[in-house]
Design a protein around this nucleic acid. Structure first.
Lengths: 142, 142
DNA sequence: AGAAATTGCTATGTTGCATAGCTATCGTGT
DNA sequence: ACACGATAGCTATGCAACATAGCAATTTCT
């Protein structure tokens, strides 16, 4: 394999692997009507109840322009609550509804199944390595 | 970090890392007016001159519905030639034009620079490992 | 010969993400 | 105190990647 052959490029393989995983995610979670982005939002709100919308944007690398309609959708579906912040009228504070909190464990398990499926050829150690290397690519801090 | 925290999910990190790389690709190759998909097409046609369009679709995981307008664009720009296949009138045979063959080395070098930039925190060994693990995810054979 | 598969294409919808521009609010510096 | 810049959330809009449906021409299978 040549030095700069397409197959040898990590960017290309990242894109293919990501697309593959995205696809498999849909297989597992279409019935829950959750896409990777919406699941990520719910998971993070679950982990950090009371998080601000702007903080959610930063953590997920999204623009608030794209976040807004998604939050509206999740609120519409009765999964997310938006409350006013006490001291800052600009801020919205987010939390999962009772229904969403009840559903999260099942969704998390579906995601675990999904991960186990598309990673079935990697050992536990390899998965940990992959996780570490991927974070080295896109995170600033460490 | 919890077992099923968002940060611990490889799918999520794959998506973030891929998006990061995609972004950096654009930084390096907007002036060449090449996107990841079009570059991949050119690189593969360069490596396998005379390849059929359908085979290119299979290798890149694309639908011919999406490939067709991209090939038309590349032909329009004088980078790709589409010729009839000798024995099968359905088939189109692809090759780079002289101009594209002349430009490829420069583009390949730009891609190398791009990869070195977004992978700067990974050692050579780590890059090889990452490549291997990513291929384990999305390729069938091996 | 007839049925099924392949090739390349158009039309079209969805999703993720970008920019531009807006209002309301907050914090800072003078 | 007050103007200015930054922040928060939003709408409108465009683009690129990808999916499905359907089509016509051709080839291959039975």
């Amino acid at each position: 394999m040549a030095e700069d052959a397409l197959d040898a490029q990590i960017g290309y393989n990242l894109r293919r692997a990501s697309a593959f995983a995205l696809n498999d995610f849909a297989v597992e979670l279409t019935d829950a009507a959750l896409r990777p982005v919406t699941y990520a939002m719910l998971a993070l709100i679950d982990e950090k109840p009371g998080i601000r919308a702007a903080e959610l944007c930063r953590l997920l690398g999204m623009k608030s322009a794209n976040m807004a309609p998604l939050l509206a959708e999740l609120e519409e579906r009765g999964l997310v609550e938006r409350d006013d912040h006490a001291g800052d009228k600009r801020v919205q504070v987010l939390a999962l509804t009772k229904a969403a909190r009840a559903a999260m464990p099942g969704w998390r398990q579906q995601v675990r199944r999904h991960e186990d499926r598309f990673l079935h050829r990697l050992t536990k150690k390899e998965r940990a390595t992959l996780l570490r290397l991927l974070r080295l690519i896109w995170t600033d801090d460490d």
